[in-house]
């Protein structure tokens, strides 16, 4: 079961990186979205895909009685999803703000737009 998932991760990585190399910042964000999905699938796959009972420790024991499903990758992926969500939302807002203030989302036009802008010499 891991092999098809490995290919899936590969395809997601490739598409994500392809999008990130575009000049449009919005596409870059979409690429980032794919990439973060790819990493999450990768971690999930790295924890081994298998059917198992929930990892619940019976009363009075220190460890589960028989083989159980691995809960750690799920916890890790859950955390990574939340973090990824926050970062991507921030990046989207940043891109929006860049569009509002500099009037473009094309990376090669950002520099010239900055030089042209009235407060180019603006110092913080």
């Amino acid at each position: 079961m891991e092999v098809p998932f490995a290919f899936l991760v590969g395809v997601l990585f490739a598409s994500g990186l392809y999008l990130m190399m575009q000049r449009n910042l919005l596409r870059f964000v979409f690429g980032l979205l794919l990439l973060s999905g790819a990493v999450n699938v990768l971690i999930f796959t790295a924890g081994r895909l298998s059917r198992g009972v929930p990892p619940i420790i019976p009363e009075g024991l220190a460890a589960p009685a028989g083989p159980v499903a691995n809960a750690l990758p799920q916890a890790v992926v859950l955390t990574a999803i939340v973090i990824g969500f926050g970062l991507i939302v921030f990046t989207l807002v940043l891109v929006l703000r860049v569009y509002e203030r500099l009037g473009t989302v094309m990376t090669e036009e950002l520099g010239p737009a900055l030089v042209r802008s009235p407060d180019a010499r603006e110092e913080p």
């Binding site: 940043l94 860049v98 203030r101 950002l110 802008s117 603006e122 913080p124």
Partner: peptide, 16 residues
């Protein structure tokens, strides 16, 4: 913070 144009232009590189 403050969203000056220079900050946004530098910020997008830093963030990405």
């Amino acid at each position: 913070l403050g969203s000056s144009r220079a900050q946004l232009e530098g910020g997008i590189k830093y963030v990405s």
